[in-house]
Structure formats: C-alpha cells, structure tokens
Nucleic acid binder design. Structure first.
Ligand SMILES: [Mn+2]
Ligand SMILES: [Mn+2]
Ligand SMILES: [Zn+2]
Ligand SMILES: [Zn+2]
Lengths: 140, 140
DNA sequence: TTCTTATTGCAAGTCTATTGCAAATATCAC
DNA sequence: GTGATATTTGCAATAGACTTGCAATAAGAA
C-alpha cells in the first residue's frame, strides 16, 4: 500500500508524516494530471486545507528525494510538474499546445514515434523534445 | 550567406539590422555551445560591446520569430539556450551533469538511442527526457 | 504529558524573463 | 547631408517560479 511505503521511507530518513504531506500525497494520488506546486497550492486551498506554498515546494522536494514522485519539466512551460511513481513505470508525455492537457505516452523504445503517438492518442504532433543527461568523457 | 539571409528576413518584417543584433548574431555564429541570454550578455560585455540584458532577450525573441535560431530548454536548467539554425538540421543534445557541456547529437530517428549515443559521444548516459507537443483531439 | 527535533509559515530574497516608456538610432524622402 | 518617421534601445519596474532564514508549531518518542 502506498501510504505504508511512504511512511516507511519518511521514517528511514528521520522524517515525519504530517497533515500537509498527507494532503499533498492524497491530492497527487487522485489526480491524473501532473501538477505544479502552484496548482497543488490552489487546489488544496479550494478544499479548505491550510498550507503554505513554501511547504508545497518542500514537500515535493522530499517526495522526490524518497523516489516517490517524478519531476517533469515540460518544454517551455517554465515550471516543474510532479506525478506519483506508484507502480507506473518509466514513460513520456504529450501536452496539448492549446489547453495544456497532458497525456501519458505508454511507450519509450522511441521508434516509429510520431505516427504511433498520433494513432494512439489522437493528438496531432507538432514538435517534440528529446534530451539526455549524463557524464561527458572529461567528467567520468 | 548568413548575414544576407538575416537582413532579408528582418526587412521583410519591417525590422532593422542594428549593431546589437549584429553583435548577438556574430557571437552565436562563432560559439559552438548553445548560449543563454545571460551568457550572451556577459560575453558581449567582456568584449566591450555595450548592450542591455533586455535587448539580448528581445533580440533572441526576434531571431526565433524569423526562424534563424532554435530555443532549447534543457532538462532542469531553469533557463533557455539558443543556437543558430544556419544549415544544421533538426537534432538533439546531450549535456554533462557535471560541467554543463552540451554536445549535438546528430541522430533523431530515436532507436537504439542510449547505446548509440554512448558510443558516439563517449558520454555515460544517465537520464533522458522526451517530450512532444501538439494538438489534442478536443483542440484540433 | 513532557521533551526533543523536525516541520511549518511568514517574510524576504534570488533568478529568469517581460513590459512601459522616453530617449536614441536606423531608414527613407528630400 | 538634413530632417521626418518608425523601430529599437536602455532603464526601471514588474512578474512568476523557486529558495532561504528564522521563530513558532507540531510530530513522535519516552
Ligand atoms: Mn505521466
Ligand atoms: Mn545543437
Ligand atoms: Zn524513455
Ligand atoms: Zn527529433
């Protein structure tokens, strides 16, 4: 169960399960879209959960450190989004330029990409960004 | 020739070729690495070229509009970089986590990716990001 | 319940990027 | 070249994402 895994992870690093962390986790759990810090802040406030934006940032940072959450930096959004790992394996995303809607792409081998994606998602693909990070010869 | 192409593009949209635009272009032309606005600003100042950071941003915006420059938003850098198109065709990048060095990847079909890249660049690939943008069914 | 220590909220600050506006300058007509 | 006109620039202010310092608060162990 997710909540147990999380508590265990928090404990193991001398951290505590708090109401605010609970609230952020619950929200991430029931939301399909990857959320930004501000979106989490706004949504929780609408639900009358008192939490500071700073705390949202700090919570996301901890969850990422524990490997429970993935940070997404989608092209030209100028902000980070977060989604729970929870079972889901490595995958990619497509975002609508118009409405901002984000959909998981359940492929990765990266071949026949555009056409496959268009068939699979009904999107019309316009651009894509592919980036790698690693260690260059001098830094290894 | 590049300078001619650029002047034509500027003229066609009622714009002018100025010293500052010239300076930014020249710098981009002789630099292999994709540059950020701040890097361009700093470099030009070192070369005693008087230019405001705002002007650098505005120049890059115009060059992008004219299709002369590509804007790169590399994973977790928190800033944009720019490189001249000038002949080069669509390609991707790899950045060293340690020193920030960026190298062009001259492939794109996106297959056998990691191993090919590691052989080709001598990098050790750690992570990669692949993103698409387009129009979702509702917005087409 | 009490004590210790992690966590939170608030305020202030950082950094990238954008905008308003008056002054400077490129281009064109003369 | 001179002057008219429209673009471009610099400066100051602003926006927005994210971070940091610190005192007050709350979690969890005893
Ligand atoms: Mn996803
Ligand atoms: Mn490149
Ligand atoms: Zn992948
Ligand atoms: Zn490509």
């Amino acid at each position: 169960m997710l909540e147990l895994t999380i508590k265990k992870g928090l404990r193991a690093t001398g951290r505590r399960m708090t109401r605010t962390r609970q609230a952020v986790l619950t929200l991430l759990e029931r939301t399909r879209q990857p959320l930004s810090a501000t979106e989490i802040f706004d949504q929780l406030h609408q639900e009358k959960v008192s939490i500071d934006l700073v705390t949202v940032y700090r919570t996301l940072h901890v969850l990422k450190e524990l490997g429970l959450v993935v940070q997404l930096d989608l092209h030209q959004e100028g902000l980070s989004r977060y989604e729970l790992k929870e079972g889901r394996k490595h995958h990619h995303h497509i975002r609508c330029q118009m409405c901002g809607h984000i959909v998981d792409l359940l492929l990765c081998p990266l071949k026949n990409v555009t056409k496959l994606i268009e068939r699979q998602t009904q999107f019309i693909v316009d651009e894509h960004t592919l980036e790698f990070t690693g260690l260059c010869p001098e830094c290894q």
